[in-house]
Design a protein around this nucleic acid. Sequence first.
DNA 1: GCGACAG
DNA 2: ATCTTGTCGC
Length: 244
Amino acid sequence: MTDTQAVTAAARVPEGWPTTEAAALAVQDELRALLVLDREGPPPGEGRVTGVDVAYDDARGVVAAAAVTLDAATLAVTGRAVAVGPVAFPYVPGLLAFREVPAVLAALEALPGPPGLVVCDGYGLAHPRRFGLACHVGVLTGLPTVGVAKNPFVLAADPPGPRRGDHAPLRLGEEEVGRALRTRAGVKPVFVSAGHLVSLDNACAHTLALTPRYRLPETTRHADALCRRALKEALAGRPATTTD
DNA sequence: GCGACAG
DNA sequence: ATCTTGTCGC
């Protein structure tokens, strides 16, 4: 219907972006102080929700990010944008954000309208240092964010019940920093945590509102399909690692 | 000391 | 994340 053509932007690694693990850890410590966790966040089913995801070609050092905005009530696509650029950091468990954030921000900025709540593909607070990708994106954009990961990370969770909506806590000490949430009956759960300006309860409510049919949120599904297509198209222009 | 480890 | 065929099911 009103599905816009995806706007394509060029992403680049910002000046002063961390190049070592030690520098990245220091940035996490610095940004973590800016997290806002005492807000309920926007209610599910209203306004807009934007999913972000990235695809890589590590051999060529290229990353493509996609941001897809949906009407929260109907889940219809209202805006799409992609950003292609250089990979900003190697993959290090716990430092994923340094790899994806530059391209993700470029895609979000290229959207035709306000993103609303941002759903990230990965963890938020349920992170060894309580500052996963969703927190990072939230602090840098000022937008409410949640993290929905497909696989368990460093925090173990008991298996949730078998029905849609059943969940089990992800604990960091005594604190519940995330949940293994069953979005489809009898199907492997997803791992939800708050990123910025959202409560864990609300993050789970949004996740359920976005999964009327599949295990993963509609936002993530759309963004995943778009960034893969964008990466392919961006690579089609250049055959391979040429002699430059 | 040796693995495991979001994407 | 990515490399990969066929196959079972709606």
